[in-house]
Protein backbone atom coordinates (compact mmCIF):
# COMPACT_ATOMS: atom_id res chain seq x y z
CA UNK A 1 0.00 0.00 0.00
CA UNK A 2 1.44 3.37 -1.01
CA UNK A 3 0.95 6.54 0.97
CA UNK A 4 -1.57 7.75 -1.63
CA UNK A 5 -3.74 4.70 -0.99
CA UNK A 6 -4.15 5.55 2.66
CA UNK A 7 -7.55 7.01 3.29
CA UNK A 8 -8.90 8.87 6.27
CA UNK A 9 -10.56 5.59 7.19
CA UNK A 10 -7.21 3.91 7.75
CA UNK A 11 -5.92 6.74 9.88
CA UNK A 12 -9.09 6.92 11.94
CA UNK A 13 -9.59 3.16 12.17
CA UNK A 14 -10.70 2.12 15.63
CA UNK A 15 -11.95 5.54 16.57
CA UNK A 16 -15.68 5.68 16.03
CA UNK A 17 -15.98 9.05 17.71
CA UNK A 18 -13.41 10.55 15.40
CA UNK A 19 -15.10 9.01 12.37
CA UNK A 20 -18.29 10.78 13.37
CA UNK A 21 -16.63 14.12 12.79
CA UNK A 22 -16.06 13.36 9.10
CA UNK A 23 -18.10 15.34 6.63
CA UNK A 24 -20.91 13.30 5.14
CA UNK A 25 -20.67 12.46 1.45
CA UNK A 26 -23.36 14.36 -0.43
CA UNK A 27 -24.17 11.48 -2.72
CA UNK A 28 -22.99 8.04 -3.64
CA UNK A 29 -20.25 7.99 -6.20
CA UNK A 30 -18.41 5.15 -7.88
CA UNK A 31 -15.45 4.28 -5.73
CA UNK A 32 -11.98 4.75 -7.15
CA UNK A 33 -10.19 1.42 -7.60
CA UNK A 34 -7.91 1.99 -4.64
CA UNK A 35 -10.89 2.33 -2.31
CA UNK A 36 -12.77 -0.76 -3.43
CA UNK A 37 -12.92 -3.44 -0.75
CA UNK A 38 -10.50 -6.26 -1.38
CA UNK A 39 -12.01 -9.49 -2.57
CA UNK A 40 -11.34 -12.31 -0.12
CA UNK A 41 -10.07 -15.68 -1.27
CA UNK A 42 -12.68 -18.44 -1.56
CA UNK A 43 -15.76 -16.26 -1.61
CA UNK A 44 -18.27 -16.10 -4.43
CA UNK A 45 -19.20 -12.57 -5.35
CA UNK A 46 -22.91 -12.01 -5.86
CA UNK A 47 -24.53 -9.33 -8.01
CA UNK A 48 -26.92 -7.10 -6.06
CA UNK A 49 -29.12 -4.35 -7.48
CA UNK A 50 -30.70 -1.81 -5.14
CA UNK A 51 -32.41 1.54 -5.42
CA UNK A 52 -30.70 3.73 -2.84
CA UNK A 53 -32.10 7.21 -2.25
CA UNK A 54 -33.81 7.09 -5.65
CA UNK A 55 -30.73 5.98 -7.53
CA UNK A 56 -30.22 2.48 -8.99
CA UNK A 57 -26.97 0.88 -7.95
CA UNK A 58 -25.37 -2.40 -8.97
CA UNK A 59 -22.78 -4.05 -6.77
CA UNK A 60 -20.72 -7.23 -6.73
CA UNK A 61 -20.66 -8.33 -3.11
CA UNK A 62 -19.32 -11.06 -0.89
CA UNK A 63 -22.59 -12.54 0.45
CA UNK A 64 -21.38 -11.74 3.98
CA UNK A 65 -21.70 -8.01 3.31
CA UNK A 66 -24.36 -6.49 5.53
CA UNK A 67 -26.61 -3.82 4.09
CA UNK A 68 -24.81 -1.40 6.42
CA UNK A 69 -21.38 -2.25 5.00
CA UNK A 70 -22.73 -2.11 1.44
CA UNK A 71 -23.98 1.42 2.10
CA UNK A 72 -20.88 2.66 3.89
CA UNK A 73 -17.98 0.78 2.32
CA UNK A 74 -19.24 0.21 -1.22
CA UNK A 75 -21.55 3.17 -1.86
CA UNK A 76 -19.69 5.50 0.52
CA UNK A 77 -22.91 6.68 2.08
CA UNK A 78 -21.30 7.14 5.46
CA UNK A 79 -24.20 9.02 7.02
CA UNK A 80 -25.52 5.67 8.25
CA UNK A 81 -23.38 4.77 11.26
CA UNK A 82 -21.97 1.54 12.60
CA UNK A 83 -22.33 1.57 16.37
CA UNK A 84 -22.58 -1.87 17.94
CA UNK A 85 -23.01 -3.87 14.68
CA UNK A 86 -25.36 -6.19 16.63
CA UNK A 87 -28.76 -4.48 16.42
CA UNK A 88 -28.59 -3.06 19.92
CA UNK A 89 -27.90 0.64 19.34
CA UNK A 90 -29.93 1.69 16.27
CA UNK A 91 -27.19 3.91 14.77
CA UNK A 92 -27.50 1.92 11.50
CA UNK A 93 -31.26 2.47 11.11
CA UNK A 94 -32.38 2.93 7.49
CA UNK A 95 -35.67 2.47 5.67
CA UNK A 96 -36.01 -0.55 3.38
CA UNK A 97 -39.18 -0.71 1.31
CA UNK A 98 -40.47 2.09 3.56
CA UNK A 99 -39.84 0.32 6.88
CA UNK A 100 -37.11 1.10 9.38
CA UNK A 101 -34.68 -1.74 10.08
CA UNK A 102 -31.21 -2.26 11.55
CA UNK A 103 -29.03 -2.34 8.43
CA UNK A 104 -26.29 -4.17 10.39
CA UNK A 105 -28.49 -7.23 10.91
CA UNK A 106 -29.40 -7.94 7.32
CA UNK A 107 -27.39 -9.02 4.30
CA UNK A 108 -27.32 -6.79 1.23
CA UNK A 109 -27.96 -9.82 -1.01
CA UNK A 110 -31.29 -10.35 0.76
CA UNK A 111 -32.51 -7.00 -0.59
CA UNK A 112 -32.04 -7.53 -4.32
CA UNK A 113 -34.41 -5.19 -6.19
CA UNK A 114 -35.50 -3.33 -3.06
CA UNK A 115 -35.61 0.36 -2.19
CA UNK A 116 -33.41 1.81 0.53
CA UNK A 117 -33.59 5.29 2.06
CA UNK A 118 -30.72 6.54 4.20
CA UNK A 119 -30.23 9.83 6.02
CA UNK A 120 -28.68 11.22 2.82
CA UNK A 121 -31.96 10.44 1.02
CA UNK A 122 -34.15 12.20 3.58
CA UNK A 123 -32.61 15.63 3.13
CA UNK A 124 -29.44 17.55 2.31
CA UNK A 125 -27.77 20.47 4.10
CA UNK A 126 -29.51 22.79 1.61
CA UNK A 127 -32.89 21.08 1.74
CA UNK A 128 -33.31 19.65 5.20
CA UNK A 129 -36.04 17.16 5.98
CA UNK A 130 -38.40 18.65 8.63
CA UNK A 131 -37.09 16.09 11.14
CA UNK A 132 -33.49 17.11 10.47
CA UNK A 133 -34.42 20.76 10.95
CA UNK A 134 -36.28 19.97 14.17
CA UNK A 135 -33.27 18.07 15.58
CA UNK A 136 -31.15 21.17 14.95
CA UNK A 137 -33.76 23.53 16.41
CA UNK A 138 -34.15 21.45 19.58
CA UNK A 139 -30.49 20.47 19.92
CA UNK A 140 -31.44 16.80 19.67
CA UNK A 141 -27.86 15.55 19.78
CA UNK A 142 -24.47 16.23 21.23
CA UNK A 143 -21.75 14.19 19.50
CA UNK A 144 -24.08 13.40 16.60
CA UNK A 145 -23.03 9.80 16.04
CA UNK A 146 -26.46 8.29 16.71
CA UNK A 147 -28.29 11.16 15.00
CA UNK A 148 -28.75 9.74 11.47
CA UNK A 149 -30.26 6.57 12.98
CA UNK A 150 -32.37 8.63 15.40
CA UNK A 151 -33.73 10.75 12.55
CA UNK A 152 -34.48 7.80 10.23
CA UNK A 153 -36.19 6.05 13.13
CA UNK A 154 -38.14 9.16 14.14
CA UNK A 155 -39.47 9.69 10.61
CA UNK A 156 -40.60 6.04 10.52
CA UNK A 157 -42.14 6.27 14.01
CA UNK A 158 -44.48 9.07 12.93
CA UNK A 159 -45.47 7.05 9.86
CA UNK A 160 -46.13 4.00 12.06
CA UNK A 161 -48.33 6.04 14.40
CA UNK A 162 -50.20 7.50 11.39
CA UNK A 163 -50.70 3.95 10.08
CA UNK A 164 -52.28 2.93 13.40
CA UNK A 165 -49.57 0.40 14.29
CA UNK A 166 -49.76 -0.14 18.06
CA UNK A 167 -46.84 -0.22 20.50
CA UNK A 168 -46.15 -1.48 24.01
CA UNK A 169 -47.20 1.98 25.26
CA UNK A 170 -50.59 1.87 23.51
CA UNK A 171 -53.46 1.60 26.02
CA UNK A 172 -56.24 0.51 23.68
CA UNK A 173 -54.69 -1.49 20.82
CA UNK A 174 -57.22 0.00 18.40
CA UNK A 175 -56.66 3.62 19.43
CA UNK A 176 -53.15 4.61 18.40
CA UNK A 177 -52.30 8.28 18.90
CA UNK A 178 -49.18 10.40 19.31
CA UNK A 179 -47.90 10.95 22.84
CA UNK A 180 -44.51 11.42 24.47
CA UNK A 181 -44.89 7.98 26.04
CA UNK A 182 -45.45 6.47 22.59
CA UNK A 183 -42.33 8.18 21.26
CA UNK A 184 -40.18 7.00 24.19
CA UNK A 185 -41.31 3.43 23.69
CA UNK A 186 -41.02 3.42 19.91
CA UNK A 187 -37.59 5.08 19.93
CA UNK A 188 -36.14 2.61 22.47
CA UNK A 189 -34.12 0.86 19.77
CA UNK A 190 -32.04 4.02 19.27
CA UNK A 191 -29.51 4.62 22.00
CA UNK A 192 -27.95 8.06 22.60
CA UNK A 193 -24.91 7.91 24.85
CA UNK A 194 -24.97 11.71 25.16
CA UNK A 195 -28.50 11.29 26.54
CA UNK A 196 -30.11 13.93 24.33
CA UNK A 197 -33.41 12.11 24.79
CA UNK A 198 -35.53 15.03 26.07
CA UNK A 199 -34.48 17.15 23.09
CA UNK A 200 -34.99 14.28 20.64
CA UNK A 201 -38.55 13.91 21.95
CA UNK A 202 -39.09 17.68 21.62
CA UNK A 203 -37.95 17.53 17.99
CA UNK A 204 -40.24 14.62 17.15
CA UNK A 205 -43.15 16.30 18.97
CA UNK A 206 -42.67 19.42 16.85
CA UNK A 207 -42.72 17.49 13.57
CA UNK A 208 -45.75 15.48 14.70
CA UNK A 209 -47.53 18.78 15.42
CA UNK A 210 -46.58 20.17 12.00
CA UNK A 211 -47.91 17.05 10.31
CA UNK A 212 -51.26 17.46 12.05
CA UNK A 213 -51.51 21.16 11.32
Amino acid sequence: MTVEQWTRRHILQGSAAAAAALPVAKEAQAAPASRRPIRKEGTHMTAVGLTVNGREVHLQLDPRTTLLDALREHLHLTGTKKGCDHGQCGACTVMVEGRRINSCLTLAVMHEGETVTTIEGLGTPDRLHPMQRAFITHDGYQCGYCTPGQICSAVAVLEEIDAGIPSHATGDLDDVAFSDAEVRERMSGNICRCAAYPNIIAAIREVAGEKKA
Binding site: G87, G90, T93, R99, R100, I101, N102, L105, T106, S153, A156, V157, E160, P166, S167, H168, T170, L173, R186, M187, S188, G189, N190
Partner: peptide
Protein backbone atom coordinates in the same frame (compact mmCIF):
# COMPACT_ATOMS: atom_id res chain seq x y z
CA UNK B 1 -55.68 -12.70 20.41
CA UNK B 2 -54.64 -9.50 22.18
CA UNK B 3 -52.26 -11.43 24.44
CA UNK B 4 -50.24 -12.23 21.31
CA UNK B 5 -50.18 -8.59 20.15
CA UNK B 6 -49.13 -7.50 23.64
CA UNK B 7 -46.38 -10.12 23.89
CA UNK B 8 -44.95 -9.18 20.49
CA UNK B 9 -45.01 -5.46 21.27
CA UNK B 10 -43.22 -6.09 24.57
CA UNK B 11 -40.30 -7.67 22.70
CA UNK B 12 -37.28 -6.22 20.92
CA UNK B 13 -37.37 -2.78 19.20
CA UNK B 14 -39.43 -1.31 16.36
CA UNK B 15 -36.59 -1.90 13.91
CA UNK B 16 -36.18 -5.56 14.92
CA UNK B 17 -39.93 -6.27 14.90
CA UNK B 18 -40.10 -4.95 11.33
CA UNK B 19 -37.68 -7.69 10.27
Amino acid sequence: YAVLSRALLAGASGQLRNK
